[in-house]
Design a protein around this nucleic acid. Structure first.
Lengths: 169, 169
DNA sequence: GATAGACCGTCCATAATAGACGATCCTTCT
DNA sequence: AGAAGGATCGTCTATTATGGACGGTCTATC
């Protein structure tokens, strides 16, 4: 409680997941993130262990530790956490997304696009298909926000598939 | 020379910029990056001061320091640096781009899309226009790789403009 | 030759990355 | 029941990266 920490996007991810899923262990968070938001916000699983601790120390979440076995930690969002999350959700932003594309980086410096294209095309196609699968099996009853990000993913991957197809020739 | 360091994407950015532009100071690099590759590979200007030092210690670049005034450091790529860069450029990758989109993150957790859309739309539109400007004034004689990444940027921003337009309603 | 504003370099505390490592748990087979 | 092997899960460490403050230097202008 009460050391004041800086809340980063990582913090809000933890808070958001906890609000949506209820009490969770870091591993739960990890799986949840990987299956969804990890697609447009990359992060490291180790952070889902350290960040909740930080949040617990500052009072945004509570921590409960199993006695036996794996001694897993279970976290739950507090009212303070809910308030912080709600406030953050209300703020708009004009920041553009950050992108880090290794393949583009190589092309920029003169790598052969036709050499890079096949594997990139394949990877983007696979991702696109993954998204479409999710929509097919029950995209109707996804929460609205989730559905929108999924649509964004589909639109964006579709575009990348086109882009790399052109380069593959 | 000869401490062996791990070469990160940041390293290759420094090497690539030095190969393309010849001897440069970190500030030169900073400006060069901001104007081009910064659009699809975000990085911090402080890194363009620390990374060349690291590379110099390992022999990938040479360092020359001004005597008077600002005592700027000038860096130049070595043969060893060129070899490392060339090798990296030859490797293909199936890694997908990393994305970090704060606005999408908020939507995912339930923020109001219509509230977020206007500023995002505006920002993406501005970026798109910036790219198109570059093409207009002399996109013909840009290096091929640079031109391709520019095309990628245009395609991608066009898509985002559409996406946020839909949400703005 | 003063001054304002742009240009430039460095530093620091904190956060994030990458990935190894080791423990625990579950299933299946004998 | 017990062993074996694979999936699940948690932690740690060294290295990089982030964000931003701070302070110095240069240049144009009056």
């Amino acid at each position: 409680m009460s050391s004041d920490i800086r809340l980063t996007p990582t913090s809000y991810i933890v808070l958001g997941m906890l609000r949506a899923a209820g009490e969770s262990t870091p591993y739960d968070l990890k799986r949840g993130v990987a299956a969804s938001l990890g697609n447009f916000w990359s992060l490291q699983h180790a952070q889902l262990y350290s960040e909740p601790e930080r949040l617990a120390a500052a009072g945004y979440v509570t921590e409960r530790r199993e006695e036996g076995g794996r001694r897993r930690k279970h976290y739950e969002i507090t009212d303070m956490g809910r308030r912080a999350l709600a406030e953050w959700l209300k703020e708009t932003t004009d920041e553009l997304p950050e992108l880090r594309d290794r393949a583009l980086l190589k092309i920029f410096f003169g790598a052969d696009p036709a050499a890079l294209a096949p594997r990139q095309l394949e990877a983007h196609r696979a991702k696109l298909e993954e998204y479409e699968q999710i929509v097919e099996l029950g995209g109707e009853h996804l929460p609205k926000g989730v559905r929108i990000t999924l649509d964004a993913g589909i639109a964006s991957e579709t575009e990348w598939v086109k882009f790399w197809s052109r380069l593959a020739g």
